[in-house]
Design a protein around this nucleic acid. Structure first.
Lengths: 343, 343
DNA sequence: GATAACAGGGAAAGCGTTCTCCCACACCGG
DNA sequence: CCGGTGTGGGAGAACGCTTTCCCTGTTATC
């Protein structure tokens, strides 16, 4: 595979020599903007660069300029449609701005997150976007804040996607209000007896959604029986096992299950179906996020739509934008589908 | 947001001064491996680094060493579960090897792909992994090969995920054989009258799968009526519109629809359901890939399982491995689920 | 106790860029 | 014809590291 001598990459120096100009001129013709360079020279340089198939060494540019074109993106799990949709938005927006995205996956571990932030900081990215799910009482929190503050003091920008409880720019997803509206809507549809499958209690996203849902119910003097709230992993399998738990407890007093995310709802749906409980009929289900797949499952899922790709794009805009708005709040809409027929 | 004076990042120089040692010693204590440094000195340096919250500038390291720790990953669409699963595998394996992944999205455009390869080459990554869907007759193909060959001659490694029709290392997905086995299995289940929804004709993945499926049928003296093969976008919506087209043509002479990917199958399922044709009952459906969601849709989808995450991990292994095996072939297994009940 | 061998610190030369100076030259007004 | 004012090329410093090379001090060997 490696028969040819293995040449070393073409440098700007080579291009300059080939074009018969100085290093400085070559640099200016190819990348440096400010100063004009004689049209004849410029063409000679461009021709030489093309002939040699030259590509500027971005690392060298970065050290010379003291700035990169990099966006560092941290997500919990790229195979999860919630995060991959957000990532798609970040990447699209980045490419439009001529930025390159480097991505790391925390696997939902705060320790790993801190470690990755430290490592990514070495890249001196322009922007760091953290789309992990924040949890409330993590010990490493302070260390993370220290790290990110240092990063900002060196001229970087930090953007969180989640709750704005941290002192950084944030794309705020209005989990509480979205869940509240969903609850109201479900009450209007005739539902009265609720259960919920949520993530661990310190997961802010999950907690806010549950709280919002409960608040919405409270407005109609309804509530969720404490034993009808089951906690589980914030994943498809967590949703599955949460539903299993509900089934084992007995479904008599439940006509609707609220899952704190669509991914969990999908898992729950499968659990119900496997147990012979027909979703949308014997039991209604609602989720949160409106990930692409939920319109294709059966029954199509009632959920709260948040524009995931746009959130990713907004995060980048917030990061590179001039205005120092500390937060952008993303609205959500309730989408009623067949998993919650009127009753 | 930026009140504090905005200090510049801590450099190795600062650390060395703080620790009272030379630059060389600091470098060796923190990163450089070969030479030993006195334990007392090393501790002083590490302490100083921690005190100043130093992070080595990776760009500077890259230009000094002439090598990076970067893996460049190109995918067609990160929101597509096929690619996001592969990406998850690449990222996991990369992090295990201490490599950083930079990701770019081609949006299925060969021109864009070429452009991105050029741009990413500037990063001087150790490895470039291309997971786009290859298409046969793309004009820019030669330019892409030139670019990638140059990259390899400079010491980089290129890995494709797809078909090995290009002169680079490849993780080969055995589309043909998988589809052939699927066809055989479906014939065993009693199906005789087939239709297919596939991608554009020059998309190799799609073409191979269709060819394999047809070959499998041929072994049992069966075939797909040419007018029962519809071509469409290789996406969920493409699957949907493909199914609509079949419905409009009439489903009388069809009892099973083979979709060239699970994503398409999912779209097709929705189309059938919307048209009142019950999938798994009035019409059977089979897909290809075994993306995570297909076990959660209704009916659960019969498909050909390929271990997507492992493919991603294999791609990285192939890239950084010593052995110059040009290709690794990934086996596939038929998974029969309820979308194709015996008949 | 003299000498060879080695360990390990520090100075300085790179790595591939950008960018600040400096300078030569052309052009202009008086 | 002279000095002033651009204009734009080129030399070289700088960016933050790694690594080679030199040199001193310690240890091993006879």
């Amino acid at each position: 595979m490696d028969q040819p001598p293995r040449t070393s990459p073409v440098t700007l120096h080579d291009v300059a020599r080939e074009a018969g100009v100085s290093l400085a001129t070559a640099s200016r013709a190819l990348n440096g903007s400010e100063r004009k360079v004689n049209e004849a020279y410029r063409e000679k340089v461009l021709a030489a660069a093309a002939r040699l198939n030259y590509t500027p060494n971005l690392s060298a540019q970065a050290v010379a300029k003291g700035a990169t074109n990099t966006v560092a993106l941290l997500v919990a799990d790229i195979a999860d449609p919630y995060f991959s949709s957000i990532a798609a938005g970040v990447i699209r927006a980045s490419e439009q701005s001529g930025l390159v995205v480097t991505m790391a996956v925390t696997g939902r571990s705060p320790d790993r997150e801190l470690e990755l932030v430290r490592a990514l900081r070495g890249q001196r990215p322009r922007v760091m976007i953290l789309a992990g799910s924040r949890s409330s009482a993590s010990d490493g929190e302070q260390a993370l804040i220290t790290e990110l503050t240092a990063f900002e003091q060196n001229g970087g920008r930090v953007v969180f996607i989640s709750q704005n409880e941290l002192p950084f720019r944030t794309v705020v997803i209005d989990n509480t209000d979205g869940a509240r509206m969903l609850a109201t809507r479900l009450v209007e549809l005739g539902y009265r007896r609720f259960a919920a499958i949520t993530g661990a209690d310190d997961l802010l996203t999950s907690r806010d959604r549950l709280a919002g849902f409960a608040a919405g119910l409270a407005e109609h003097d309804l509530s969720i029986r404490p034993d009808h709230i089951v906690r589980s992993e914030f994943t498809r399998d967590g949703g599955f096992s949460g539903a299993v738990q509900l089934i084992e407890q007995g479904l008599d007093d439940i006509d609707l299950v609220f899952a704190a995310s669509d991914v969990m709802a999908v898992g729950a749906l499968s659990a119900f179906r496997e147990a012979g409980v027909v979703p949308g009929d014997a039991i209604a289900i609602a989720g949160f996020d409106d990930i692409p797949t939920v319109r294709d499952i059966t029954p199509p899922l009632t959920t709260v739509r948040i524009p995931l790709e746009e959130i990713g794009a907004q995060a980048l805009a917030l990061a590179i934008g001039e205005d120092t708005d500390a937060a952008v709040t993303i609205g959500s809409t309730v989408v009623v589908r067949e998993s919650t027929p009127p009753r």
